[in-house]
Every structure is written in structure tokens, then in C-alpha cells.
């Protein structure tokens, strides 16, 4: 069996004919396998969905319990037969519940990694390496300019700024699923035990992370009825990136706009967004980690999707690996909302 016969792109998403299933479809399909709960990978309206229990829970929180007609949880590392193929979910280290999906048929194994990262993240399961014949990798940060520093150093930078500007509110923009909880958890690991104020859009997911054993400490809603602006001076407020451009943001004392994202490694990106304190904290692999992962999977062929495919394809060529861009549509860059 050739790779293309096992998985290939269709307008609806990545399709597997022998299993009659799609991975992370962008349009409703009869049978969908979902890698993780981010909105561009997990969409409502599919008939049958298979995903990890946590991803199913997250989809129910975001879209309501009727996000699909039927759903089936996939246990970590347990092979399951779907049509003529065997599928197995392995941790991807991206966000809570995020999975790589290994698809096997006729002696060929393809791993669709979804989004993944290799760094330590106290808020989700660590990445697990899955040897395979064909590895489908994301390319969000697939340029040699992306070399994420240690996130502990970034958290330390934030805390230094909080001490240096006690009269200001530090407003950390972070994607609602995964990034926000990771930033909060890493603040706690760094010894910050003040209450952290959160935008309402984060509440349900933070509550859910707590039920899954990710302790986030004291979280309070970042709202005030008749208080003064000084109420939030010296505090850390976490909200979605887009909320800081909202009128919502006006209530805070001389805010320091911080933004936790891999994109913040490039100054011009920070400047364009009006970010004063960029925090380079990413849910994705940086360049070095993408290259290492590709090598470690032992795959002889690499398919590259969503992001800067051309640079990673070039790297594979330089290193004697067969590689091709996999043109999937509908996936967004991280937090470019």
C-alpha cells in the first residue's frame, strides 16, 4: 500500500479511504478523528467523532453536548479497528488531551501528529515518540528563526516586570485552551501565589483543567462593578489575545500588554500587536525540535502541513529525506486571531 492510498487531502480534510474516516476535518463528515480541541482542528457538526476523552470533554464545553451525533473515546495507546485500518492515539504534548493519531494498514504506518510540542508543560501529557513510515508534521514555527527559550525564563521576565511596575496591570494574552492554563500553572511553579484574574472566556476551561488534576491556584474574575482602576494595579490578568483590543480592557490600571506566544520571538510581530512585554511561550515545537522529531521518528517520508512548509521541506531534502508539502486548508497560525 502506498502512503497516498492510506491518507490524502480532500477539501473536507485529511481522508483515509480504507477506514472511511477524516482526521481533523474542516467541514462536517460522517466519521471524524480529532487530534485536539483547538477550534481549527475540532469543529462541530460531524456525525461520529473519535477522540481522547479530554478532547471530547473540551469539545462539549466549547460547542455543547450535541457537538456530534455519536462520540467514542479513544484510550491512550490502545489500537482500535476502524474499517480496514487500525488507529492508535498517542500524546502529542500540545494541550490537555491532544493526540497524535497513528493509522496502520497493510504494514504501513502513518502518524498524523496534529499540533505537537516536545517541551515540558505542566498542564498536559508529555509528547510520546511514535516510530512510523510516514510522519505528518505541522510547520507552524518551521523557520530557523524560531528557537523558543526556556519558558521558565520567560515567566521570570514577567514576574520581574510585575515587581518593577507595581502600579500597573500586567495583562497576559493567551489562547483560551492550553496556553492560558499553562501560563497560570507555570506562574504557580515559579512561586507566584497571588490570585490571578481571568477573562470570563477562560473560566470554563480553567475549571475543567482543575478537574483533570491541573491545579491553577486562586483564580478570580477580572471584573469590577464600581471599583476604581487602581483595583488591578500590581496584578496579573490573563485573557484571550483578542480581548485586549476589546473595550473590556479599558478597566485596568495603565496596562502592560504581555502576550504569550511563539510568535513573540520576532520583535516586529510584538510591535505590530502593540505588545509591550512579549513572552515567548509556545504550544508548538520550535525549529530545532521539529528537525529532531522528524529524525527520531525514523520515517523515510515526511509530509509537511500548516505553516511554513517550504523551509521544512528544504531541510528534509538537505538531510536526504523525502518530503512534500501536504496542502490542507483551513488551519490557522497559532493565535493569529
Amino acid at each position: 500500500m502506498r502512503g497516498h492510498d492510506l491518507l490524502h487531502p480532500r477539501p473536507e480534510g485529511l481522508y483515509c479511504p480504507p477506514g472511511d474516516l477524516y482526521i481533523d476535518p474542516v467541514r462536517p463528515v460522517p466519521r471524524a478523528l480529532i487530534t485536539h480541541g483547538h477550534g481549527d482542528h475540532a469543529r462541530p457538526g460531524n456525525s461520529a467523532v473519535m477522540a481522547t476523552q479530554q478532547t471530547l470533554d473540551i469539545m462539549a464545553i466549547r460547542y455543547g453536548a450535541d457537538f456530534a451525533q455519536t462520540s467514542q473515546p479513544a484510550d491512550w495507546g490502545v489500537p482500535q479497528k476502524v474499517g480496514d485500518v487500525t488507529v492508535t492515539f498517542h500524546p502529542a504534548g500540545h494541550v490537555l488531551g491532544s493526540a497524535q493519531i497513528a493509522v496502520e494498514c497493510g504494514g504501513l504506518r502513518i502518524v498524523a501528529s496534529g499540533d505537537y510540542k516536545r517541551r515540558h508543560d505542566p498542564s498536559c501529557q508529555p509528547f510520546e515518540l511514535v516510530p512510523c513510515d510516514i510522519f505528518i508534521t505541522e510547520a507552524t514555527f518551521a523557520l530557523p528563526v524560531f528557537r523558543h527559550p526556556d519558558s521558565k525564563a520567560e515567566i521570570a521576565k514577567l514576574l520581574r516586570s510585575v515587581r518593577q511596575f507595581p502600579d500597573r496591570t500586567h495583562m497576559v494574552g493567551a489562547y483560551a485552551l492550553g496556553k492560558a492554563q499553562r501560563v497560570i500553572r507555570e506562574l504557580r511553579d515559579a512561586g507566584y501565589d497571588e490570585p490571578i484574574y481571568i477573562h470570563g472566556a477562560l473560566q470554563k476551561l480553567c475549571d475543567y483543567y482543575e478537574t483533570q488534576g491541573v491545579a491553577l491556584g486562586a483564580l478570580l474574575p477580572a471584573t469590577l462593578e464600581k471599583g476604581s482602576k487602581k483595583d488591578f494595579a500590581g496584578t496579573v490578568v490573563v485573557g484571550t489575545p483578542s480581548s485586549f483590543a476589546d473595550r473590556w480592557a479599558r478597566r485596568f490600571a495603565d496596562p502592560v500588554a504581555a502576550f504569550a506566544s511563539g510568535w513573540m520571538g520576532v520583535r516586529q510581530r510584538a510591535r505590530q500587536r502593540g505588545v509591550e512585554l512579549p513572552l515567548i511561550i509556545s504550544d508548538h515545537c520550535d525549529w530545532d525540535e521539529l528537525c529532531v522529531t522528524i529524525e527520531e521518528t525514523g520515517a523515510g517520508e515526511i509530509w509537511v502541513t500548516h505553516g511554513r512548509e517550504e523551509a521544512l521541506v528544504r531541510w528534509c531534502e538537505l538531510n536526504g529525506l523525502r518530503a512534500q508539502p501536504l496542502h490542507l486548508v483551513g488551519y490557522e497560525d497559532e493565535a493569529e486571531d
Binding site: 485586549f244 483590543a245 476589546d246 473595550r247 473590556w248 480592557a249 479599558r250 495603565d254 496596562p255 502592560v256 500588554a257 502593540g274 509591550e276
Partner: peptide, 10 residues
């Protein structure tokens, strides 16, 4: 154009 700092939401 959106401002920065105190005027980030304006």
C-alpha cells in the same frame, strides 16, 4: 490605528 499601553483598546 489602535494605540498602545493605556490606549491599547482605543
Amino acid at each position: 490605528q489602535r494605540g498602545s499601553g493605556r490606549r491599547a483598546s482605543y
